[in-house]
């Protein structure tokens, strides 16, 4: 399964960076959401190939269990990423209210005075 995950991770990162480099706020926002997803997938892939293993719930039953630590890390990362996404949404809204535009390149046109 790792090869599919590797390709998928690559695609996710590529898509997220592509979106991030746009000028529209919406694209940038989507880019960040995809970026968090991409990093989470990357992290979970660090636990190795899950084929033939069970979930880390120690019920009865035997057999190899998948590595639980990356899953815990990803959980933390998802929550932190969520907090950041919400903050980013609010920030974009606030900038939109002040600058009246959703185009990032229009934000940074040179202004009259040096300040």
């Amino acid at each position: 399964m790792q090869i599919e995950t590797a390709l998928l991770v690559g695609l996710l990162f590529a898509v997220s960076v592509y979106l991030l480099l746009h000028k529209s706020f919406v694209r940038i926002l989507f880019g960040f959401v995809t970026l968090t997803n991409a990093t989470n997938l990357f992290l979970i892939s660090m636990s190795g190939d899950p084929d033939g293993k069970r979930a880390p719930i120690l019920a009865e039953g035997s057999g190899p269990i998948v590595d639980p630590l990356p899953q815990a890390l990803v959980l933390t990362a998802i929550v932190i990423g969520f907090g950041l996404t919400i903050y980013l949404i609010m920030l974009l809204y606030r900038i939109f209210l002040d600058a009246k535009t959703t185009d990032a390149s229009k934000l940074f046109l040179p202004e009259a005075d040096d300040e």
């Binding site: 989470n40 979970i44 899950p50 880390p56 959980l75």
Partner: peptide, 11 residues
């Protein structure tokens, strides 16, 4: 599929 049910729920 990665055997991470808690993760899926959170996601």
């Amino acid at each position: 599929l990665y055997r991470a049910p808690d993760l899926a729920m959170t996601q």
